[in-house]
Design a protein around this nucleic acid. Structure first.
Lengths: 106, 106
DNA sequence: CTGTTTTGATACCATTCGGTATCGCAATTG
DNA sequence: CAATTGCGATACCGAATGGTATCAAAACAG
């Protein structure tokens, strides 16, 4: 049984959130730091970060009055697992294509 | 340069659409066939299929008055490519975690 | 040709979503 | 203590989204 990927897929569907993930890849950041890189209010960024944490892609740890956001390395596992189902599909398709070609040219 | 994954991520964000992809994995289907597996109107399913084709995940071919929907094997490439950027990140993180643990318990 | 079937297109509705404005709270700093 | 700083929470707004109902068009059957 694999985890429900819905919240993760939902989190990845917004370009701003994917951009935030790209930023967090380099270093952990506070909300204010993240917001400094966007033309939107801190509250809006906070909402995006909430969606990302709900999706399991980001974790938060408190340090004094700061809240550091970091990527959760395990977060994309449900997404990868779901997409992995299609690997077999690709293989099947290609195999079918291959045998079709082989039967065409005996 | 990799393709913009926005439309594909958008398409994958809805559970109904992911379910449709799972169904199309087994066989190509008309809109009516797909709609037969859901408790919603054909028009609603048609909208989902439009989002899926916009995302490059599904292609349509006309056969008589039927419109057969099939999965596009190349459609998920932009998504995979985008996610791939985080592979190196995972490795780095896990390596850092591993060495941190090893340094903690000698 | 007439009627049925499969589909596309549109108008419309309720909900969700991305965003701002604003308030209040906790932690540092003077 | 008071002032500042960083953050969370909420109410509110416009736009997008998921869904229905409905109509028109194309392809096949009789």
């Amino acid at each position: 049984m694999i985890a429900d990927p819905q919240s993760a897929f939902r989190a990845l569907a917004d370009p701003t959130r994917r951009q935030i993930l790209m930023m967090l890849r380099r270093q952990d950041m506070t909300i204010a730091q993240v917001a400094g890189n966007f033309d939107m209010t801190r509250a809006a960024v906070k909402k995006h970060l909430t969606v990302l944490t709900d999706g399991g892609l980001v974790t938060v740890r408190t340090r004094g009055r700061e809240r550091l956001n970091s990527i959760d390395p395990q977060g994309m596992a449900p997404v990868r697992d779901w997409l992995g189902v299609f690997d077999a599909f690709w293989d099947d398709r290609l195999a079918a294509l291959k045998s079709a070609i082989e039967e065409d040219s005996p």
